[in-house]
């Protein structure tokens, strides 16, 4: 089962094939220079916190009760520095409702990475992860970098999906996993940084550089949601 999808994010063999719209250096529309640019897509059920996660990463903010349902598809850019290289992430935010998938899956094809989210306080959003993986398998590139995120871990008292359940599912499909909170910021930067590192290593592998292992990196850097595990 775990080999059904060739989505192992640590598989860098195809790195050279990864299509990158390189700038050397280029100017992004916000006026920032960058060396590499990648497309990242946020997917997952309606209400799992995709937009909140993006805003937390982009602006470092979380304004409770200020978010509206995302209709259609939108994107924001953020340039971050990875090992001295400026990487621009063009992050696509999508509507989660099932009927919008027929509108949004046309964009999967161009995505270099996908962040698949569920909400730890919503069992149905977790149960739907398999369906999302099927969708991703069908429409995304074979070597797309994929990461599973269990969001909203700040709502400890409402949690219905255990961390172990997320870990188990992620292991089954061979994808890196972490729990996040757009509200507190827990692991949000890490999720995007890890993806940026993986994409950067794939596209500019230096001869003497040790192979970057996304799974190991995530395991090392991830923080727990409990107060004592930081």
């Amino acid at each position: 089962m775990s080999q059904e999808f060739q989505l192992k994010a640590s598989d860098t063999d195809k790195g050279n094939e990864t299509e990158v719209f390189k700038g050397r250096p280029s100017l992004s529309s916000s006026g920032e220079f960058y060396d590499l640019a990648f497309k990242v897509m946020l997917v997952g059920d309606s209400g799992v916190g995709k937009t909140c996660l993006l805003v937390r990463f982009k602006d470092g903010a979380f304004l409770a009760g200020s978010f509206i349902s995302t209709v259609g598809i939108d994107f924001r850019n953020k340039v971050l520095t990875v090992d001295g290289v400026k990487v621009k992430l063009q992050i696509w935010d999508t509507a989660g409702q099932e009927r919008f998938r027929s509108v949004t899956h046309a964009y999967y094809r161009d995505a270099h990475a996908l962040l698949l989210l569920y909400d730890v306080t919503n069992k149905a959003s977790f149960d739907n992860i398999q369906a999302w993986l099927t969708e991703i398998h069908e429409y995304a590139q074979q070597d797309v970098v994929l990461m599973l995120l269990g969001n909203k871990v700040d709502s400890a008292q409402d949690r219905v999906v255990k961390r172990e359940d997320g870990e188990k599912l992620a292991k089954e499909y061979g994808v890196p996993f972490m729990e996040t909170s757009a509200k507190s910021g827990l692991n949000v930067d890490l999720a995007f940084t890890a993806i940026a590192k993986e994409l950067k290593h794939r596209s500019m592998k230096l001869p003497n550089e040790p192979k970057f292992k996304l799974h190991d990196y995530v395991k090392k850097e991830v923080r727990g949601s409990g107060c004592c595990r930081s």
């Binding site: 309606s46 209400g47 009760g65 200020s66 978010f67 509206i68 349902s69 409702q97 149905a124």
Partner: peptide
């Protein structure tokens, strides 16, 4: 009902 409830707090919070 579930789908509608998901959007209640996300309709015109402003």
């Amino acid at each position: 009902i579930e789908a509608i409830k998901t959007d209640m707090n996300r309709t015109f919070p402003d």
